[in-house]
Simulated assay, not measured.
Amino acid sequence: MKKFYSNYRSGSIRIIAGQWRRHKLPVLNSYGLHPTTDRMRETLFNWLNPMIKNANCLDCFTGSGSLGFEALSRYANFVTMLEIKNYLVKQLEMNLKRFKSNNGKIIHTDTLFWLENNKGKPFNIIFIDPPFNSNLLDKTIFLLEKKQWISNNSFVYIEKKSTNIINYIPNNWTLYHKKTAGKVTYSLFMVKNNLIK
């Protein structure tokens, strides 16, 4: 089984700030699951602090829910969470019920299929943190642009193994922040009007 980062061996994640600060959420051991570390989440949400309140967010590969629930804790308006593994979906739904939140929705789906075949309002903040060896980054970025899921002046977060290369970054995406922690690189992009129609 794929190992978690050292601070997740207990099988839980800690919400860092907001209305659910210091609450812990159980995390199921799952191959390919790599919850975003406390330090990385703290840095990311410091970047997003001026934008997160009242934002409509999309978590493309929810996994443990560390990003989606952190966004909800910090008063995001709504977070749509996509996850393909049924047992992770059930755990995420239990976590959402625990907080009695009506501002999140867990969707059991393949992310690429959902992006390709659904329509809806574009999102203000999008999290892309797929399994590291899945080759899903470029396809996800392309569909987000093609299907116009990103609203103007919005932000996209990407977390990946440092050795993985993103081959497709649209010209209307501007790198806002970037950091590396160990073998992981995480970046935040600002997105202007979509190029692909």
Rank of each mutant, 00 (worst) to 15 (best):
K2L: 02
K3T: 00
R9T: 14
G11R: 02
G11T: 02
I13T: 15
R14C: 12
R14I: 08
R14D: 04
I15C: 03
I16P: 05
A17Y: 01
Q19D: 12
R22H: 11
P26Y: 06
V27G: 11
V27T: 12
V27Q: 12
L28S: 06
L28V: 00
S30R: 08
L33Y: 07
T36W: 11
F45W: 07
A55S: 13
C60N: 14
S64N: 08
L67C: 07
A71P: 06
L72M: 07
N77L: 08
V79H: 00
I84D: 06
I84M: 06
I84N: 12
L92N: 11
E93N: 14
E93L: 07
M94D: 12
N95V: 00
L96C: 01
R98Y: 13
F99D: 07
N102W: 04
G104Q: 00
T109C: 14
T111V: 15
L112P: 06
L112A: 05
L112E: 10
W114V: 00
L115E: 09
E116N: 15
K119H: 10
F123P: 06
F123Q: 13
F123H: 10
N124L: 01
I126A: 10
F127A: 11
F127E: 07
I128D: 02
I128Y: 06
N135H: 10
T140A: 10
I141Y: 05
L144E: 00
K146F: 01
I158H: 08
I158Q: 02
K160Q: 15
K161V: 02
T163L: 05
N164R: 07
N167G: 15
Y168L: 13
P170T: 03
K178L: 12
K179W: 03
T180P: 06
G182T: 06
T185K: 11
S187D: 09
V191A: 15
N194A: 06
